[in-house]
Design a protein around this nucleic acid. Structure first.
Lengths: 337, 337
DNA sequence: ATAACGTTAGAAAACGTTTTCTCACACTCA
DNA sequence: TGAGTGTGAGAAAACGTTTTCTAACGTTAT
């Protein structure tokens, strides 16, 4: 039923080896080449990728393991990476862990079994404790989240600086009781929290940072609790776009409105943010560039397996909305190596 | 370097066939089974999926080809499908066509080369004209968009009825000059437009339906033009969530505000929609159920290759927000076979 | 003119599994 | 007791490619 390379060879009256050579673009007699191409067309031959990968021992496949595909940040980065990959003739296996360490481990195992060329990975914090346990066996580039001491290439946002910029922005707008909500499942939340706290201290603000759980209802409870305390904050910073939504929901539950009752700012520039509550001030991440950089680093790593690990830190861009804050900006650019 | 099944066999002092049998859970002597398992662990053996797929001739892989991964509707459906698939031990190859017929054809070709078990597919309209050219060679289930006369299984929203419900909703709120914006790249936009026009006619409204191009700037121009005409509509219906955003952007450009200056409604219940302009009324699609149904139909099709094609039409749910419209609802349920 | 070399294409091996085939063994039943 | 039957494990074939190996040929240089 299925037509294989031998069938093509028979029709073209050449050997299977020659067909293979034509298809992989190596030099063959033009006359033969023509016969082969004609035979391919007439038979409707399609190479069997499994067989090809088995024999050639390279899969031209990269794994992309993200923490939450519903987060527009990750879909944007995924799209960028996929486009770059297919342009180079590589396939992408996209995996979504839902921040679940078990799924994460499972997908890593799958990457092994697929014998992927390399992996781009946004890990949750389970590996921080047992970083040495993560012996990839293939090149890995971390995105969005770092793993201290894992010795892996990574491309990150300059989280601390950006969080500080957000605090400064709110401070400049006159807010003094700023609270921050940060995830603890990834290094990203932690770094942003550190930047937030340092900036607040430097400005002499008594800012409170709170840990956000990943589950939505629990997260909402946390926000509600924070806002129901004795002195309500006059500004809120959320660790990412998804949490910003949770905050909005909690505010609504309390009958509060942003930015009238409380200022709101955060990370990730989702496309709806300009339309909500007079516009939300956020740190926009250079998603396209994050994808491009990760891909480049992965390919570099394939060429130079033993080069020292690199860490690329990209700047974000403050998008000031709502009140009359300063219209600050900075083109995304590497600031470290 | 790499450890194969033969190495495991040698360590366990059994034949490779036995190792294979243990790993695929067939009955073997318990003592041997134990030796094999121990050997697998001690050697760190990982099966080579390419080899396995080549020999066994089934890939346990389904392709999922969507039109726009940035559209939350598709990410939600993808997530549902992926969860179901992995629960059944199947892999998913996720492809994003960006509504580009060339990409679409390329990915379909890839599906062939991967020898996928089946494909779940949201096609753009290129196939309508040349439906017979789409000879899959594997089971295909269409989602979100239908291909008349292609004889394929499909699961769709009841687009016409839902569009009509939206019109009725706006009419009940007192709006009389309703305009609709519909994409022409897929059957979905067309069906919604038909439902919109029929409902308007039935209500005696002089509703105008306009075609939205896919490119964002062009789309925005269309909306701006529509709103700058001699008599401005007092309500706008958008064909999906992405277009709703385009509309919001165009409104802003004209200095108009929803729902004060104009009412806004559409399809897809994205998570931010309750927070924008007092809340947008939308038709919520049963994304989870769409994914589940598509998966079920695909598996059914594998069991019964020659059964007649089925078309499942699911109801959406009107989520009434903003003004004081009726709080209508209907649980998603099949209404057709 | 002949040896040495480079190029080209076919023959055959190899990739790492699963599956078929074969055989040995134990058990049942007449 | 002996033939028939069922079970379980190893040997070997098979999956569809790519790659190595080998041989033939044409070209150049001596």
């Amino acid at each position: 039923m299925a037509v294989g390379i031998k069938d093509v060879a028979r029709v073209a009256e050449v050997s299977p080896a020659t067909v293979s050579r034509v298809l992989s673009g190596r030099s063959v007699d033009p006359a033969m080449q023509e016969r082969v191409l004609a035979a391919v067309k007439s038979t409707g031959y399609r190479p069997n990728l499994a067989a090809r990968r088995l024999r050639s021992q390279h899969t031209n496949t990269i794994g992309l393991i993200v923490a939450d595909i519903r987060n527009p940040f990750f879909t944007a980065v995924s799209r960028a990476i996929e486009n770059l990959a297919t342009a180079r003739g590589m396939r992408v296996i996209l995996c979504n862990t839902d921040e679940d360490p078990a799924k994460e481990a499972g997908y890593l195992e799958l990457m092994h079994e697929e014998r992927v060329t390399g992996v781009i990975f946004a890990p949750c914090r389970q590996w921080v404790e047992k970083a040495e346990r993560l012996e990839p066996g293939f090149p890995v580039v971390l995105i969005d989240r770092s793993l201290p001491s894992a010795g892996l290439d990574s491309v990150l946002l300059d989280n601390e600086s950006m969080a500080a910029e957000l605090v400064a922005h709110l401070h400049a707008q006159g807010h003094r009781r700023i609270a921050g909500l940060f995830g603890a499942a990834s290094s990203t939340g932690i770094e942003r929290r550190v930047g937030f706290e340092q900036a607040a201290r430097k400005l002499g603000l008594a800012a409170t940072a709170v840990e956000m759980p990943h589950a939505t209802e629990a997260a909402q409870r946390v926000v509600t609790e924070l806002l129901s305390g004795p002195v309500r904050p006059d500004a809120l910073v959320a660790s990412n776009g998804v949490m910003l939504l949770t905050v909005l929901r909690a505010l609504r539950g309390l009958g509060l409105e942003a930015p009238t009752d409380i200022a709101l700012a955060g990370f990730d520039n989702n496309d709806w943010m300009e339309f909500v509550g007079g516009g939300l001030s956020v740190i926009e991440q250079p998603v396209e560039e994050i994808g491009r950089t990760a891909m480049t680093m992965l390919l570099d790593r394939l060429d130079h397996p033993d080069a020292p690990a690199r860490k690329v830190v990209l700047a974000g861009r403050l998008i000031s909305r709502g009140s009359s804050g300063p219209r600050a900006s900075a083109a995304p650019q590497p600031i470290g190596a």
